[in-house]
Design a protein around this nucleic acid. Structure first.
Lengths: 212, 212
DNA sequence: ACCGCTCTTGACCATCTGATCAAGAATTAA
DNA sequence: TTAATTCTTGATCAGATGGTCAAGAGCGGT
């Protein structure tokens, strides 16, 4: 049995193979979605036989949930770092930049979530209503504080967060469309970053109601 | 055979049933995606037998493509209406409002496209690279003209369009997440509309580089 | 070397699903 | 009415797919 008490310590081989599986599963699930992916595909992609893969994760859904959970934490890290003590404009700019870089560096994670949420979040609905909502509410109240202090243009904080999510993740989730329209110039993500920071941050800077 | 020459005129029943099928297919495909939907589901949803449905559309993919094409034109209409002779701020504001209302009134169409593009646009890739790119390029050059005339803050026109698409369609595509975080208050879409117009339009208004 | 446990796999199964077909029912034009 | 055409469906098929199982191979602690 397992070495000590209730803690199911992992074998070397277990740790290795589970990592292989999760990596391959992210690749496959993010490309084809849950229903569109087959256990065989994932197995082949990581060089294991199907029964062997199912030895580590009994059901297809178990793999899927494991990948989601494995990636969720990292994905939210930039929002967690929004600092109430920092300069509002600086903090928001930093968040936008961090998010768009995540979109660039880990588009598969973005597409995995996009697919899950697009289909009604059957696997992570509870997470969205719990931990995610709490985190967003917390950060929204920080932004509301900045607005109340006159340090930001008054906008709905929740919808500001949605706007940042939407615009940044767009480049990962809808890459096929972006590429079709503007191709894939080397400066693509840099242009996007500059444009988004300008657009959103200018819209956030406090100022006289009427300008020009 | 068909009544006159090469024109396959449609029977009353044909027109009726094809409409039924397309409506049901939009419902199913937008919810479960292409792979996640079954012909049986669509057939049941519109009260036809599976073989009967396949009498009108020989293959599952034919239904899918038909629904996409059937919806694409309408979906792009607001962008087509962007008027080079109008006031830039007014035109962009109107476009944002039109798009977010489409998200609200026809979220299924949005999710259908989102799913298609998320999976690499296998069915409409050619459309994206052709007609869509042309339309966007045309409108982007209009925006570029406004910027050159000093009537808009200088931002990359293509990325501005992406930002508008992303933020507005977010409310249809990621409804599960939005609902989980802020619930579904009656004012949701109105709040979103106000926030987005403020954010993006303030970011677009020309003004002195330094304010406050 | 030994032994218990972990790991691996070929063969197999039940189910789902897209698609076909032949035959009959309904519709339409004359 | 009649005959050609269109429409409808029960039965059926082939392939894909998630999942199981028994048996053997490999590994680690003693």
């Amino acid at each position: 049995m397992t070495p000590s008490g209730t803690a199911p310590r992992k074998t070397r081989i277990q740790a290795l193979n589970e990592e292989l599986i999760l990596k391959a599963a992210l690749e496959i699930f993010s490309t084809y979605g849950f229903r569109g992916s087959t256990v065989d595909q994932i197995a082949k992609s990581c060089g294991l036989s199907k029964p062997n893969l199912l030895y580590y994760f009994r059901r297809k859904e178990d793999i899927y949930v494991a990948v989601l959970e494995h990636t969720l934490h990292d994905w939210l890290e930039p929002l967690r770092e929004l600092d109430p003590a920092g300069d509002p404009i600086e903090e928001v700019s930093r968040y936008i930049r961090a998010k768009i870089r995540m979109s660039r560096d880990n588009p598969k994670a973005s597409r995995l979530f996009a697919n899950e949420i697009l289909h009604g979040a059957p696997a992570i609905g509870a997470f969205l209503k719990g931990p995610l909502k709490e985190l967003v509410d917390e950060k929204a109240s920080i932004i509301a504080g900045w607005i109340a202090a006159g340090r930001l243009n008054p906008v709905d904080p929740h919808h500001l967060v949605f706007a940042i999510w939407a615009t940044t993740q767009h480049y990962a989730d809808f890459d096929a469309q972006v590429s079709a329209v503007v191709g894939t110039p080397a400066s693509l993500m840099a242009d996007a970053e500059r444009t988004l920071v300008t657009l959103l941050v200018e819209g956030l800077k406090p100022g006289p109601a009427v300008r020009g």
